[in-house]
C-alpha cells in the first residue's frame, strides 16, 4: 500500500489530542467548584477549611483508592461502609479490653491499629474468597457481607454506641487532629495511599492485570494472568485500606455505632466513577478517584458554607454534579 510508510512514521510517536475531556473532565469540575467556593465565601480557601475538607475526604478517599482496583478488575464491593463500622467497633473493643492490663498508652493503640489491619485483611479475604473460589457474584457477596457487618456492629454495640476509653482517646486523638508541618495525619496517609495506588495502577503488572481482567477475563486467562489471584488481591487490599481508614476514623469521635460509615460504599463508588474509572471494569484511574472524592466533599462543604439553596436540595445538587462530571467525560465517545 502506498500509504504504508507514512502510516508507520505516524506511529513512531504517541500522539495525544490537545484537550481531552475524558482526561480533564474531573479536573475541570474540581476547578469550577473551587472557583465557585472562593466566590461564595472568603473563608473557603482558609487553612482551616482546606484542612477540614481534606481530612474528612481521607476516609472515603483511602477506601476509594482500593475500590478503584476492585472496580477496574470488574468487581464491586458494597460492604466497605459497614466493614468500616464493624472494624471500628472491634478496634474499640480490643483497645478497651487491653487498657486494664497495658494501661492507656501507645502500646494499646498500636495493637488496636494492627487489629484493624488484620480485621480488614480477614474481611477482604472473606469477600474475595467467596467471589473467586465459590464464584458468587461480587454484588451478591458484598451485599450479604454489608448486612452482616452492619448487624454485627449493631449487636456489638447493643444498639447503641461503642466508645473508646477516655484516657486512650486522649492519647490517640492526635492521630486525627495533629500532623507534620500543619498537615494532619489523615491527609498525609491519604496522600501516600493515593500516590502508591497511582503507581500500582499505572506502572506495575498488578495494575495492568486488573485492567486486563476487567476488560476481558478470558483474554487475561489466555494471557497467563492469574485471574483469581489478582481478583482476590484487590478485595484483600481494599479490606486492609478500610482498616487503615478506620485507624484514622476512630480517633476523630472516639466511637463507633450502627450509624458509622453508612453509605460510605456508595460515596466511594461514586468517587471512583466520577474520576473516570469504568464501572464495568477495564480501565481505572487512581488520581481520578482522588479528584472524585474531593469533588464530593467540596460540594457538601460549599453548600454548608453558603445559604444559596435549601438544605433539602443538597442531595439534588450533589446528584446533578456527579452526573455532569461523568457526562463531561463521555462526550468524547460520541465520535
Amino acid at each position: 500500500m502506498a500509504d504504508a510508510t507514512t502510516t508507520r512514521q505516524e506511529l513512531r510517536k504517541p500522539r495525544r489530542p490537545a484537550v481531552n475531556l475524558h482526561v480533564v473532565g474531573p479536573l475541570v469540575a474540581l476547578a469550577v467548584l473551587i472557583v465557585v467556593g472562593v466566590l461564595l465565601n472568603p473563608n473557603f480557601l482558609s487553612y482551616g477549611n482546606v484542612t477540614n475538607v481534606l481530612a474528612r475526604s481521607a476516609f472515603i478517599g483511602i477506601i476509594a483508592v482500593g475500590m478503584t482496583f476492585v472496580i477496574t478488575s470488574g468487581g464491586l464491593d458494597l460492604s466497605v461502609g459497614s466493614m468500616a463500622a464493624f472494624i471500628a467497633g472491634l478496634m474499640i473493643l480490643v483497645m478497651n479490653a487491653l487498657v486494664p492490663t497495658l494501661g492507656p498508652g501507645w502500646p494499646v493503640i498500636l495493637i488496636g491499629m494492627a487489629a484493624a489491619l488484620v480485621f480488614g485483611f480477614l474481611a477482604g479475604l472473606g469477600n474475595g474468597l467467596l467471589i473467586t473460589r465459590a464464584r458468587i457474584e461480587a454484588f451478591i457477596v458484598t451485599l450479604g457481607s454489608m448486612g452482616i457487618f452492619r448487624s454485627l456492629i449493631t449487636w456489638l454495640a447493643d444498639g447503641g454506641t461503642l466508645s473508646l476509653n477516655f484516657q486512650v482517646r486522649d492519647v490517640y486523638r492526635p492521630v486525627y487532629y495533629d500532623g507534620i508541618l500543619g498537615v494532619s495525619w489523615p491527609i498525609i496517609v491519604f496522600l501516600v495511599v493515593a500516590i502508591a495506588g497511582e503507581i500500582a495502577m499505572r506502572h506495575t503488572a498488578f495494575g495492568r492485570h486488573c485492567a486486563a481482567i476487567g476488560s476481558n477475563e478470558q483474554v487475561a486467562r489466555y494471557s497467563a494472568v492469574h485471574v483469581e489471584r489478582v481478583r482476590l488481591a484487590t478485595y484483600v487490599m481494599l479490606g486492609m485500606l478500610v482498616g487503615l481508614a478506620t485507624i484514622m476514623y476512630v480517633p476523630r469521635l472516639g466511637s463507633a455505632s450502627s450509624a458509622t460509615g453508612v453509605l460510605w460504599e456508595l460515596e466511594a463508588i461514586a468517587a471512583v466513577i466520577i474520576g473516570g474509572t469504568v464501572l464495568k471494569g477495564g480501565f481505572g484511574r487512581v488520581w481520578g478517584t482522588v479528584v472524585g472524592v474531593l469533588i464530593l466533599n467540596l460540594i457538601q462543604n460549599i453548600l454548608n458554607l453558603t445559604d444559596l439553596v435549601s438544605p433539602y436540595l443538597n442531595g439534588a445538587i450533589q446528584g446533578v454534579i456527579i452526573v455532569l462530571a461523568v457526562v463531561l467525560q463521555r462526550q468524547k465517545k460520541a465520535l
Binding site: N41, N43, F44, G48, N52, R252, T260, N301, N304, L305
Partner: peptide
C-alpha cells in the same frame, strides 16, 4: 448522626 454533625459544625465554624 455524629459524623454528619461533625462536618456540618466544622463548616459552620469556618463560615
Amino acid at each position: 448522626n455524629r459524623d454528619s454533625a461533625f462536618t456540618v459544625m466544622q463548616d459552620f465554624l469556618s463560615k
